[in-house]
Computed example of a mutant assay.
Amino acid sequence: MYWLGPFEYRSKQALLAGVKEYLRTAPLGRERRPVAIQKLQLLLALHPDAERKIGVGVDHFVIARNQLSGRGLRVVRVDGTEESFSYTRCITGVAQSPHGKVCEALRFAVLPQLDAFRARLTFPVKCEISGEPIVHPNDLHVDHKTPFWKLLARFCKDQQIDLSSLATTGSGMKLALVDSSVTDAFVAYHSKHAELQASRKAANLLKGGSVATSSDSYRIKALRPNSS
């Protein structure tokens, strides 16, 4: 997995493909959708020249046509100056952030709950996204009805926890938080609040999260995280 702040992606390539699609389909002009803005801020912070790009501070982001072809991202600073930035430079070659490792460690911590849910199922199982039958275990994905990253964000808000202040130990499937009390608290929170469902793997990958407000029904399919 790859994490952009609290947002989970299957890989860096999935994030790159997502941003490319976002640029292709999003309306030109100033980006006003809160979730998209948050992700663009996180992307820009990964840029190798982020300090200079951000300058006196970010006022907003703009999706603009490039001079030669295609579309690109521009950051407009609080003093009115602006500059383009490459999302590929923001993502390519960047190591998993400490914050991302914390998110991944907490994801690993609740895997037993997902495994237990899977073990209780009897095939064929109805896909809760497409309505199609799931006839083989290899086609099954245990999915969160409320995306995992949203659940984690609510936990942090409720418990007043700053994930960026936490440390991890180990690697791979043995990645864990140094402070096990936070892990235990999240495992209990997940057990109480997470709503799990069965879905076909293909249906889950196609599921997009709406970040629309009441005045904007546009659906971002590109900057969306892995929806589970």
Rank of each mutant, 00 (worst) to 15 (best):
A222W: 10
D162V: 15
L205I: 13
W149S: 08
K174P: 01
S191Y: 08
C156H: 07
W149G: 04
V182D: 00
K221G: 13
L205W: 08
L223V: 09
T183N: 00
V178T: 15
Y189N: 05
T146D: 02
T168V: 15
S181Q: 07
D179F: 01
A176H: 07
S215N: 13
G170C: 08
T183R: 02
V211L: 09
S191H: 14
D184W: 02
E195T: 14
T183F: 00
K207T: 12
Q197F: 07
G172V: 11
F186W: 00
S180E: 14
S164D: 13
K192P: 04
A194M: 06
A222V: 07
S191C: 10
A153Q: 13
Y218H: 10
D184I: 05
F155R: 02
D162M: 08
N204I: 00
L152G: 02
E195G: 03
K150D: 10
M173I: 15
L206D: 09
N204D: 08
A203P: 01
I220R: 06
S181M: 06
S217G: 13
S199I: 01
R224W: 05
L152N: 03
S171Q: 13
V211R: 10
T168S: 00
K201G: 10
I161A: 07
S191P: 04
R200N: 05
S164K: 14
G209V: 11
S171M: 06
L177Q: 04
Q160W: 05
A194L: 02
A176V: 00
A198K: 07
L223S: 01
